[in-house]
Simulated scan of single mutants.
Amino acid sequence: MIIKSLRWLLPCLILAGAYGGYTAIASTGPETSEEEVKNTLPIVTVAPIQSSDYKVVITSHGELQPVEVTQLSAQVSGEVISWHPNFVVGGVVKRGEVLFSIESDNYQAAVLQAEAQLASAKANLIEEKAKAEVAKRQAKRLPEKQVTDLYLRKPQVLSASAQVKSAQAELKRAKRDLENCKIVAPYDALVVSRDIGVGQFITAGAHVATLNNVEAGEVHIPIAGFDSAFLPKNYAGLDARVIQRGISNVEREGKIERDLGVVDSSTRMINVVVSVADPYAIDSSAMPLKFGSYVEVQFVGKELKHIYRLPQELVNNQQVWVVNDKGELEPRKVNVLRAEKEFMLIGEGLFDDDQIVLTVPEYPQKGLLVDVNVAENVMTH
């Protein structure tokens, strides 16, 4: 009987011993602390954000071209006897410099002849006026009916006066032709082509050269539809930056002059004209910009109020992740007003002091608890 009781009691003792051992081991093992639980949460870096007013920068591209192109022609005929050393293709000449000269002997003779004709006409006028004065004194002794305009030599005086004016006009024309024997640059110019040489006979009206005005250049830049909304109401006169990208960038100051007044039928864009003073840097120490250069133009558009400026990589399908007051991830739908290079301009969906997630977990979920690492800088533009 005792043996049978021990048979049942022994397993119970073994189980009791095993439980006592487990309890002892568990009580002496490491406890799972709240800090260790927290360390298992995903770590994200956040930065507080603040809104501010922001001036939109509009960027476009175009080709620098001359404001004025002149097809130069001779105004008198004659033989070319000399030309300016810079009057060659690619040469730059200054305003008022003599580009080339035409043999002027015949035109000098024409001036002398016109001067002689004028002197003769003036002498004839003096003579007629003297005769008219004599006739006027004699008319005092004659009956009034006999005194006529012809007797007083008024027609002769008018004719002599007209001859003087005609001679003056002829002299003026002769002097102008003489002056036109020296063809001068109408402005600071780049010589694009030249069609004459020394010893060549040219006729009046013949094309001799093509000149580009280098006192100013202009760039026609297209403004896309999404940029048109950010143009100021009155943009004529705004300053602009004109940049030629390359190994070393060339940057010049420009100014918006006007738009072309029409919408391009193929692109549905407007074109704005930006002027650049002295593009070839003739009168300055700036780096020159040559006609035909493809340049970038930047200018300031409208000022937007209460805007958030975020790096593009933080905005995905118009959604931004923030960490709320509970330490949870929260997706925010935002209104993207504009993209500028690597940044997005946000108008709605965010609030000041929101904690923007800079390092989004690989599988972000709404309500996911995260451990927050706050960046030092506040995100503003």
Rank of each mutant, 00 (worst) to 15 (best):
K255E: 02
N335C: 05
L190K: 06
F226N: 12
K55F: 14
A174L: 01
W321V: 03
A109Y: 12
S77F: 05
Y235D: 00
R258N: 11
V378Y: 02
A16P: 11
M269D: 14
K341A: 11
S275Y: 06
L238I: 14
V214C: 07
F87K: 04
V378G: 03
F343Q: 14
A236I: 05
E215F: 03
Q50M: 08
I183C: 11
E144Q: 09
V297A: 07
G347N: 11
V370F: 07
L289I: 02
P85S: 09
E257S: 12
E296H: 04
V297Q: 08
H84M: 00
K341H: 05
E31P: 05
E313P: 02
G292R: 03
G199P: 01
Q365S: 13
S161N: 14
L369E: 12
F343W: 13
I196W: 11
Q244C: 03
D188I: 05
G217N: 10
A229M: 11
K290T: 01
Y308K: 03
A209C: 05
E253D: 07
T28V: 10
N106T: 12
Q113K: 15
V164K: 04
T32V: 13
Q163F: 02
L369G: 04
V67E: 05
L368T: 09
I2V: 06
S77M: 00
H220T: 08
P30I: 06
G301R: 04
D354C: 10
H381D: 12
A74I: 08
V370H: 07
G62C: 02
A26L: 08
S265A: 15
K182D: 14
E63K: 14
S104R: 08
I2K: 07
G21P: 07
Q108D: 05
N316F: 03
R173H: 06
L9M: 08
S248F: 05
V46W: 01
Q50A: 12
A224D: 06
P331V: 09
A160K: 04
A240G: 01
K145C: 06
Q113C: 01
Q163Y: 06
L350Q: 05
D195V: 08
A74C: 10
